[in-house]
Design a protein around this nucleic acid. Sequence first.
DNA 1: AATCCGGGGGC
DNA 2: GCCCCAGGATT
Length: 372
Amino acid sequence: MKNLPIDDFDIKSFQDDLISWFEREQRKLPWREDRDPYKIWVSEIMLQQTRVDTVIPYFRRFMEKFPTIEALADASEDEVLKAWEGLGYYSRVRNLHAAVKEVEEHYGGTVPDTPEEVSKLKGVGPYTAGAILSIAYGLPEPAVDGNVMRVLARILSIWEDIAKPSARKVFEEVVRKLISRENPSFFNQALMELGALVCTPKSPSCLLCPVREHCRAFREGTIDELPVKSKGKKQKQIRLQAAVLEDEDGRILIHKRPDKGLLANMWEFVQVEESTVLPARQVLKDYLGDVFKIEAALETEHFTEIRHVFTHLIWDIRVYHGKILNQVQETNELKCVPPDEIETFAFPVPHQKIWKAFREQAKSEKVKDIKG
DNA sequence: AATCCGGGGGC
DNA sequence: GCCCCAGGATT
């Protein structure tokens, strides 16, 4: 029996060692400057599946642009998406935007402070609810993320598979038993900070650990076996053909993705999935040919290939260059924009790479012209 | 319970 | 390459 009860565990001593370490060693972070629930909330959404160092510049820019709940509620979705461009998991910010409007309308602009109300907000799950309630309001609610599961799995020698959704509840019950009633905020933050700075996934710094004496895995030599985490399956590969298309005025054709699913509401250059049957480029030409007259430029070879790895799939994109000879009928999803305005739209990273490659290719063409 | 949903950094 | 990251919504 490896999952031991926590009877022989000195909770008070553990809390003291953990919290006093946090008071000494915590990093200075922009969302720790005050206890504004709005800032705590935004930071927690940004930090979902995203490292602190990545989040910091986004957080600063976001707060400059949308300093209050009211400012964010009044912004347009395109503006908000643009501020999130490059951070990934874009439904986070669309949900945040909707939730902030909800708070503005139904809670008079004040983030609610009960588990029931906070949890109802879009994009606020068990972790984020606990984080807001404990950090912003000082309530003893668990905030169990990947760090907390790793740290507690080691300290208490818990052999649950932390990749399984059911594991989170086990750890929430553990936190309810361990959490400091005097300082729930620092207790929760300290567990996460410890996971980020000391009790790391690989080669943890046990010799520097403030709670080493409380750690069963350290005592029993099982640090490298804990936590137990099953592996996910590998990504599906998708071949795409994309085109940077210019109209006769040199404007670029861009397309807005549907409001659900992958990269919802983000802009992109036109692209289609490659057929396994038809020869290269034929699919793209057929697709575009229904709508546009495409000049022979599309007959030339693709000018770049982009590989982009997502969590659950891999895009391999061949990118062509073409010219549109007829008038483009613009819609909400289809626009022609001048090249210098491309960067005002929110593009996913793979299509930012396409634009970068396109400009460099155009530059080298120019050099050739001059030399020729 | 599985699957979907981004992107980057560390090794 | 592989792993993981201050997870949540949908099915």
